[in-house]
């Protein structure tokens, strides 16, 4: 048993920011417990990325490198991660609550017979120096503290929750190569094709800025003004359930209890009244801006800044102002 293992997700040779966030946050806990802080990289030709993890505090980086791991595949990556866990023998296993992390970690937990807590926003030690994982449930209506009863405690960490520490450029990783015979596994689910999104926007669950539209957008084509604002801010585009059910936006854009729970630095709600289900999904945003013509809309009760007015007039102006500001 030698401490904390962070499964550092990479895609196309780029490590996800959440891996650096988890490492940054765990530096303190590793010091308090005397645990080693290690990371794991899975992919094809990914050893070169290990130093980046060291710069955020990883001591050893367990690398499973194989041409058949070039793209994410549940069964192959589970085998690879289980191999890395076997080599690293962690007491605590952490990954990002990303699209791939949410697919991989439960399967890995079942294989390792460990408990797993999803989408955690806080990791702390209790008086017995046991790891306690805090996570929102009922999409944020309730906060639950959980512990694991298994030998290994595992959790996925929500992106944008832990702040990044300054990377230490002088640090080099101690790379431990792990051989896992993934080539002999015949996956029963294979990615045949990837259909790219119409626009290259960040994912809602990882975005640091989100602009969302609600019923007040009135029509699908009106989301164009949101898209323009989002392009200027480099943000993701979300929607309320009312907007999705009215056909203004796609189900994958829905924020709230029957959609995605998001945690950006800035959430701009346009024409969203603020139903309990929607508020549950975005209430942990650092700053909330609401623009709505109804001064009684519940969204104003949670918004840091509000404008009561016509969004069709305000949003294009806002886009213009942000453009001006960001060009400075």
């Amino acid at each position: 048993m030698s401490g904390i293992l962070v499964i550092a997700e990479q895609k196309d040779g780029k490590i996800k920011k959440v891996a650096f966030e988890i490492l940054s946050e765990m530096q303190g806990i590793a010091k308090d417990t005397g645990f080693e802080l290690n990371a794991c990289l899975i992919g094809n030709n990914v050893s070169g990325l290990a130093d980046q993890l060291a710069q955020y505090g990883a001591q050893k980086v367990f690398v499973v490198d194989n041409p058949s791991l070039a793209q994410y595949n549940t069964e192959l990556y589970t085998a690879a991660a289980a191999g890395a866990a076997d080599a690293a023998k962690p007491q605590v296993l952490l990954g990002g609550a990303t699209v791939a992390g949410k697919d991989l970690m439960p399967r890995l937990a079942a294989r390792l017979k460990t408990g797993l807590l999803s989408d955690c926003v806080l990791v702390k030690l209790n008086s017995d120096k046991k790891f306690v994982f805090q996570r929102p449930i009922y999409s944020g209506k309730v906060i639950a503290d959980s512990v694991c009863a298994s030998d290994i405690a595992a959790a996925t960490i929500r992106p944008n929750v832990f702040s990044l520490k300054q990377p230490d450029a002088s640090k080099k990783a101690e790379v431990v190569k792990v051989n896992v015979d993934v080539a002999s596994i015949k996956p029963r689910v294979r990615v045949k094709e990837i259909i790219k999104a119409k626009s290259e926007k960040p994912d809602l669950t990882e975005a640091s800025v989100i602009v969302s539209g609600g019923r007040g957008m009135k029509a699908r084509e009106n989301f164009k003004i949101i898209e323009e604002l989002a392009d200027v801010l480099g943000s993701a585009v979300g929607a309320s359930r009312a907007a999705v059910d009215s056909g203004y936006a796609d189900p994958s854009q829905q924020v709230g209890q029957t959609g995605k729970t998001v945690n950006p630095s800035l959430y701009i709600a346009l024409g969203i009244s603020g139903a309990i289900q929607h508020l549950a999904g975005m209430r942990t945003s650092k700053v909330i801006v609401a623009i709505n013509k109804d001064p009684e809309a519940p969204i104003f009760k949670v918004a840091d800044y509000g404008i009561v007015g016509d969004l069709f007039q305000i949003v294009p102006e806002l886009t213009k102002e942000f453009k001006k500001l960001l060009a400075e």
Partner: peptide
């Protein structure tokens, strides 16, 4: 393999300006 040790309600968000 895991259990909840405590439930709590999240802090209320204050209305801004």
């Amino acid at each position: 393999k895991s259990k909840v040790v405590k439930y709590a309600l999240p802090p209320e968000r204050k209305a801004g300006k």
